[in-house]
Simulated scan of single mutants.
Amino acid sequence: MFRISSGRRAVLGLAAAAAMTVSLAACGEETTSGTGTGAPVPSAAADAALADKVPAAIKSAGKIIIGTDSTYAPNEFLDADGKTVKGVDVDLFNAVAQKLGLTTEWQSAKFADIIPGVSSKKYNIGVSSFTVNAERMKETTMVSYFSAGTQWATKSGSTINPDDACGKKVAVQVGTVQVDDITARSKKCTEAGKPAITVDQYQAQSDATNAVISGKNDAMLADSPVCAYAVKQTNGQLALVGDIYDSAPYGYVLPKDQADFGGAIEKALEALIADGTYKTILTKWGVEAGAIADPAVNPQVS
């Protein structure tokens, strides 16, 4: 998700509020995930040459410990059991790990705690819809794997203009690039003599979504696949507003000194793109529009 330094729930459906409450309560639990429900994802054969580039401690353990904010459907969110993390990010990185000869252990965490957790080696990697940007690459190694933009959503039947939301109440998740986005828009309002935007920040994206459904907030903005999924899963309670903008790559987050490991992950992604596994996974979750052809370690970004 578009998230800045330091963008996810059980499928919403008709019982949206209840499902989101269950998922939030389970946040912070350590979980080991499969691919979740839905169409099966083909297994990826291990590549010995890539496996040799895995850091010794991880290779010895045979598994990679992943920090994720499991409140960001369809990217990473909790299954109906309230423990198992699933989503497009989960399916895709599980396949990457298989290429590296590793199993995965997904640990739910607050989004803002993941990068510090990677830096302190609590997690081997952060996989949580992190937007690649220069600020993050100052302290981490990042490997791009997907592209997303920002999208707005509101309650069906409501009207809001993202370019003139002055005086409105808008929901965003803490620590995301959308916080900067809406803060800048509010500043333009006040500079023009109009009412400021009330910016409500939520720890979990599911809570931001629920705030719009309940009418507490007039609108929300989040990463484009997240908004699209929320609209679909709430059976028409929400509607998308305006166009997708500010597209940028997502990246896996590694410790700063692990560029070589990042290179192995990049090559694993390239193999998954070449054999069609990458496309199969994205299509399963309906996010194939965000596919990229050229994953990279610390890609250049504007």
Rank of each mutant, 00 (worst) to 15 (best):
E29D: 12
P55A: 08
S5G: 14
T37A: 15
P42I: 01
A15Y: 08
A46Q: 08
A45L: 08
A57P: 02
A39R: 11
P40T: 07
E29I: 14
T35K: 00
A56N: 03
T21D: 14
V54W: 00
S43H: 10
A16I: 03
K53S: 12
A49Y: 03
A48Q: 12
L12N: 00
A44R: 01
D47Q: 02
A51G: 01
A51E: 02
K53V: 05
S23R: 01
M20Y: 06
S43G: 09
D52K: 15
G36A: 10
A26Q: 05
A51C: 05
G34E: 03
A49H: 03
R8V: 11
R8Q: 11
T37L: 13
I4S: 06
S6V: 13
R9G: 09
A26E: 01
L24S: 08
C27F: 09
A10G: 04
G13N: 08
A16W: 04
T35W: 02
V11G: 01
A57Q: 14
G36E: 04
G38S: 07
A39K: 15
I4W: 02
S23P: 02
K53M: 15
T32D: 13
I4M: 05
G36T: 05
A19F: 02
S6H: 11
L12G: 00
E30P: 01
P40S: 06
L12C: 05
L24E: 14
S5N: 12
A10R: 02
E29N: 15
T32A: 15
T32C: 10
A17W: 07
D47R: 00
C27T: 13
D52E: 15
G28A: 08
R8I: 10
T37C: 04
R9W: 04
V54A: 00
